[in-house]
């Protein structure tokens, strides 16, 4: 472990707080992943880590390197942009795949409406598996 004496105390407090908050939010997201009952509920959980968890950890990293290198370090923004753009895409693909598999097995969680519905289709909770 290297020495961080060159870092001012305010920066150390800020970096430490951001790191711990980001890590805690990511942990909460995976706990949700483990606790929620159905797949469609579980798909919401990792978004916690990919929105605020990643945001806080990257903020900590940007602050830390900006202070230690005494110039703005912004390349972490690339990871942030990348995660923001890709997470919805992968989750959508996965949700569609899950829906397709459920429908193919005749285990229809939400039946396709035959005609354009005026309002919303029948509401129903997914039956517990």
């Amino acid at each position: 472990m290297s020495s961080f004496d060159a870092v001012p105390v305010w920066a150390a407090l800020l970096v430490g707080a951001c790191l711990v908050i980001g890590a805690a939010i990511t942990l909460a997201g995976t706990i949700g992943l483990a606790r929620f009952g159905t797949f469609y509920q579980r798909i919401h959980a990792p978004t916690l880590g990919s929105s605020f968890g990643t945001g806080f950890v990257l903020l900590a990293s940007m602050l830390f390197f900006s202070v230690t290198e005494t110039r703005p370090v912004l390349h972490e923004l690339l990871i942030l942009v990348f995660v923001i753009v890709t997470t919805p895409v992968t989750l959508m693909l996965l949700a569609r795949a899950a829906l397709y598999r459920d429908r193919a097995e005749g285990n229809d969680v939400f039946p396709e409406p035959a005609a354009p519905p005026d309002g919303a289709g029948p509401e129903q909770n997914e039956p517990p598996r």
Partner: peptide, 19 residues
Amino acid sequence: STIILTVAILFAELLLGAA
């Protein structure tokens, strides 16, 4: 600041490891 950062990093690593 060494103490603060060392503790915070260790704690964050533990949380992420648990995740």
